[in-house]
Design a binder for these strands. Sequence first.
DNA 1: GCAAAAATCAATCATTTTCATCCAAAATTA
DNA 2: TAATTTTGGATGAAAATGATTGATTTTTGC
Lengths: 250, 250
Amino acid sequence: MLTPERHKLILQLIKEKGVVKIQDLVDLTETSESTIRRDLTQLEEGKYLKRIHGGAARLQGKLQEPSMSEKSSKSLHQKRQIAQYAANLVEEGDSIYLDAGSTVTEMIPFLPAKEIVVVTNGLMHIQALMERNIKTFIIGGFAKEQTKAIIGRGALASLENYRFDKCFMGVNGIHPQFGYTTPDQDEAMIKQMAISLSRESFVLADDTKFSEIAFAKIADLHTAAIITNELNEDQKETYTSKTTIKVVTA
Amino acid sequence: MLTPERHKLILQLIKEKGVVKIQDLVDLTETSESTIRRDLTQLEEGKYLKRIHGGAARLQGKLQEPSMSEKSSKSLHQKRQIAQYAANLVEEGDSIYLDAGSTVTEMIPFLPAKEIVVVTNGLMHIQALMERNIKTFIIGGFAKEQTKAIIGRGALASLENYRFDKCFMGVNGIHPQFGYTTPDQDEAMIKQMAISLSRESFVLADDTKFSEIAFAKIADLHTAAIITNELNEDQKETYTSKTTIKVVTA
DNA sequence: GCAAAAATCAATCATTTTCATCCAAAATTA
DNA sequence: TAATTTTGGATGAAAATGATTGATTTTTGC
């Protein structure tokens, strides 16, 4: 049984029954426990389910509020610093792409409102963008609940119609060898496409993010910068040495 | 039986009956007394129940059911009635289009969740649809702030890729001569296109809505129904005489 | 009311199940 | 063919489980 088939089956079972046991999945798919475990790990990384001892469970609807721990923490402050730096890169008249993701959302309050056009696949961004009266386009496609992102074949086709001066990407992690990474292949494809449609690409990464499906090998980023902070000299070396990208400390 | 399943079962039983005996839980879950005791200890720590000698009991004190606040306005009640009627028209396996608008939003809680696919241009719908785990696609295009609708050339192009079994339209008004009306030409075009892509079309209109740019002449609706209520006999005559549409009173 | 009997309890331990990790074989791709 | 990806099995660690023990609480019989 092929990987996408198994994933689909697992998700369907979880949707129906709420929980599913690993052994049942092994029997059903006629594969090994190892394989099912890998599947579950991947699906959990993509925020499609929650692993529990003995199997997996549907994760309940709302993502919990950002807990105090995180809200007040250094992490948020960092995110905002980076976001502000990134937003200042946008010039009046620019057409930009904003990737789905919480770090990118933080950019919106700092964007120059006049005369810019924003295209996004992030449902979370829409409200904030409209409140600032920014001309906003959303790409069409499948709405993924967990990340509030538009993904899928349709989304790729929809995205193809645009060109951007700059695009801004969130990442789940940065891997020295594989580039910027995100756990979900579908989201990775969208990111890749957006980068290819953009004159300049920027990756927003706070240093908590410093490994899964690479959505852009560093070589694919023609003109790009990792916008981050508190990167130590070793890390800087690692990334800058591989290509011509800039590492900016906000 | 997996731990979360047992926990869920225990909580459900306690919710229903107020108290539950350990031995009953042992029999029901086919596990050992030790396991149930551990479960109860954990659930008590999480403040989900109170342990008592021989079992566990619901803890009183807090969460009350939703208050009176919501269920007054007659208009809302009407809208909901209509919405519920419309939602019942959707069958499992249907692919449907939901037009942007508050009346249509009301349909979502009543939709059969299984196996349906929803396409929409209504940003307001997305959250509710995703919460119900309904496969949701949004069309791409310009995000209009006032109505939280996706519109424009891009939206039309995006919409073209779909076909629907049924589509559900909100309207601003109904005009005897011009048909269903909406004030915005862009939105009207989207509506018209959706109707042309759909095997059956339904218009949701409470009687406060019974005249600007017609988005669909009655003749354009092949198979369609106005779903409304408290329509008087004169009005009924006016609309039914013009074409084969049905007027349904919810 | 009181003591014996019964039931329930927390704590501990051995067993079983599940887990992450590693490695080699198979399958797929270049 | 070589290189990469996917798979399945093996390993020891970690977690969950079930039985046992003796203490504590409740019930029973008087």
